[in-house]
């Protein structure tokens, strides 16, 4: 069975600061791996190395069992999505979603058919002609997902994609992502510093601290592990509960 993404012995340092230290990572087909870590722990650096946007000091990255270390970002079939939707401001919804197909010089009929289907599946019907500044934050994120998914990437790298949304929209988008992940059989890494979001979005969870990645085989394994942020979260809610009882 083909492994969508595998990273071996990844190390990266900036000057004397070791950000990633001999890191290993494997992603199974159709799963979302949540990576949890504090700000500045190297989550973004890891994603950028996987996407080819930043070089690793050592190690290799394999996509579908092929070593892609020497490939440019456009040839990797790994799409990196930022916290912001970053839609192209000069293109409407249809053209934003169709963008990846135009880069690949697909025929007009194919572009139209695929894009309209994607718009329908994203629940954005009737918005084809709208410009990005006319959309809400949540709608912009939907378009951003559509623009990535239409290229049929092997792996999606999501760098706190809902970080700039308000609580309600964030909750809706989390549910939306769960649905499309199932619908499109997405293999993804979801980076966040929010424990609840990590547990909600991931099939498995990993924590990144001091340059090392600890991957837990299941959500239960993560919850039951000692010395992690879940324990802090549980302790917090227990203290709230205790205060209310008193």
């Amino acid at each position: 069975m083909v492994t969508p993404l595998k990273a071996e012995h990844i190390s990266k340092s900036y000057g004397s600061e070791q950000v990633l230290d001999d890191l290993h990572l494997q992603l199974y087909s159709g799963e979302t791996l949540s990576i949890l870590g504090r700000s500045g722990c190297g989550k973004t650096t890891l994603l950028k190395i996987l996407a080819g946007l930043e070089p690793a000091d050592q190690g290799k990255v394999l996509v579908n069992d092929i070593d892609i270390q020497s490939l440019s970002p456009q040839a990797r079939e790994v799409v990196y999505l930022y916290q912001e939707a970053l839609l192209f401001p000069h293109l409407n919804v249809f053209e934003n979603i169709a963008f990846g197909l135009r880069l690949r010089n697909r025929s007009e009929e194919e572009i139209k058919e695929h894009t309209l289907t994607m718009i329908d599946r994203l629940g954005l019907n009737g918005m084809n002609e709208k410009m990005p500044h006319q959309l809400s934050g949540g709608q912009q994120q939907r378009v951003s997902f559509g623009r990535a998914l239409i290229t049929n990437p092997s792996v999606l790298l999501l760098d706190e994609p809902f970080g700039s949304l308000d609580a309600d929209t964030r909750s809706n988008m989390q549910q939306f992502f769960k649905n499309i992940a199932k619908q499109f059989d997405i293999t993804a890494i979801f980076v966040t510093h929010n424990v609840k979001e990590a547990m909600l979005m991931g099939n498995r969870i990993a924590t990144l601290a001091n340059g090392s990645l600890s991957v837990f085989d299941s959500i239960d394994a993560f919850i039951n592990s000692s010395n992690n942020v879940v324990q802090e979260e549980i302790a917090f809610w227990e203290s709230v509960q205790a205060r209310r009882s008193n």
């Binding site: 456009q74 790994v78 990196y80 963008f99 135009r102 880069l103």
Partner: peptide, 24 residues
């Protein structure tokens, strides 16, 4: 960031200029 995102979407250097940076 837009430039890097476009790269991962499959855009070459020339395509990034022609389809994104110059129109923007």
């Amino acid at each position: 960031q837009i430039e890097k995102l476009t790269q991962t979407l499959g855009g070459s250097r020339w395509q990034i200029y022609r389809r994104v940076l110059l129109p923007m």
